[in-house]
């Protein structure tokens, strides 16, 4: 079986009220089980791109295939949405019900799953995000990170093959951010779910297997984090940062220290610096 899960070919998209194309000629493919980060400045089209992956938006030109299904195929719309779950920035605006477990059940109720099976899958989903003991709480009693995990559980319950997260940590405090990232990483590792993480935190992108950088509706870079972040000048020219350690190495290299520009983690950096100093 083909290892590609989602694929888009020459994707073009523009909103009705804008003359400029939000996405132009985007061609990308995602493998099963891959953990990808999408970076880009505000308005670069990354959220718009994400919405194409589960047919919330349909391409104006080109096509998107999810698990071999064309997203334009209206008959299979819910097959696509069940396969690709989506988590948004504001946890408050994606929770529908007044009780945690009812909310997690929402998608399954929509899909017409029998009640006993819903119960089972809801419990399983809540356990997999570590929110089982909060199942009877109402959402407003939870912290931001917990709410976001409930939102993720609501998606997990559908048993999707891929989860697209659109800046899921942007509105959270550092603790909440850590909780959410840990959960997402575990889902990728243990359940083999394909993750596409849209973010503007470079540290989050650095931990992924692949980083895509978008600018003005085009794919600028698409590589492993080490390679992407070594192009410090290019990233800065499109208004992006690099992880702090990469920045440090970059600044030191200006003085001709000759450090490896592929450093992206603190450990690597410490090691390189110790080597240099001794």
């Amino acid at each position: 079986m083909d290892n590609t899960f989602a694929r888009c070919e020459d994707l073009v998209f523009s909103y009705d009220d804008e003359s400029r194309d939000v996405l132009c000629d985007v061609s990308l493919s995602f493998k099963r089980g891959e953990f990808t980060a999408v970076l880009g400045h505000n308005g670069c089209g990354k959220s718009t791109f994400a919405k194409h992956l589960n047919a919330i938006l349909l391409p104006c030109g080109g096509s998107v295939y999810v698990d071999g299904i064309d997203t334009k195929d209206e008959e299979r719309l819910y097959d696509i949405r069940q396969r690709v779950g989506m988590v948004f920035q504001n946890p408050d605006n994606q929770i529908v019900a007044t009780i945690v477990e009812e909310d997690v059940a929402f998608a399954l109720e929509n899909l017409g799953v029998p009640p006993e099976e819903i119960r089972e899958r809801v419990d399983e989903a809540l356990k997999s995000v570590g929110m089982y003991k909060y199942r009877m709480h109402s959402p407003h009693q939870l912290s931001g990170g917990q709410k976001q995990r409930v939102a993720i559980a609501g998606i997990i319950a559908m048993r999707p093959e891929c989860i697209v997260l659109d800046e899921p940590t942007a509105m959270l405090d550092p603790i909440g951010r850590r909780e959410v990232l840990k959960t997402v990483k575990r889902l990728n590792r243990e359940y083999g779910i394909t993750i596409i993480l849209i973010t503007h935190y470079m540290e989050e992108a650095a931990m992924c297997g692949r980083v895509i950088v978008m600018d003005k509706g085009k794919v600028l870079l698409d590589d492993v984090p080490k390679e992407v972040f070594s192009k410090v000048e290019l990233l800065k020219s499109v208004g992006l940062d690099v992880p702090q350690v990469t920045e440090l190495v970059y600044e030191l290299n200006k003085y001709g220290l000759g450090l490896d520009q592929h450093i992206i983690t603190e450990e690597e950096c410490t090691e390189a610096l110790i080597k240099l100093l001794s």
């Binding site: 919405k51 589960n54 919330i56 819910y78 949405r81 069940q82 779950g85 989506m86 948004f88 504001n90 408050d92 605006n93 994606q94 529908v96 477990e101 009812e102 059940a105 929402f106 998608a107 399954l108 109720e109 929509n110 899909l111 017409g112 799953v113 029998p114 009640p115 819903i118 119960r119 809801v122 939102a151 609501g154 998606i155 559908m158």
Partner: peptide
């Protein structure tokens, strides 16, 4: 908020009351 909620509901396959089941009977 309403707009975002509507998108989130669509993402979770909401399509009105037809064919819907309920967890709690």
């Amino acid at each position: 908020r309403a707009e975002e909620l509507a998108t989130a509901m669509e993402c979770r396959c909401y399509r009105g009351g037809e064919g819907r089941t309920r967890m709690r009977q």
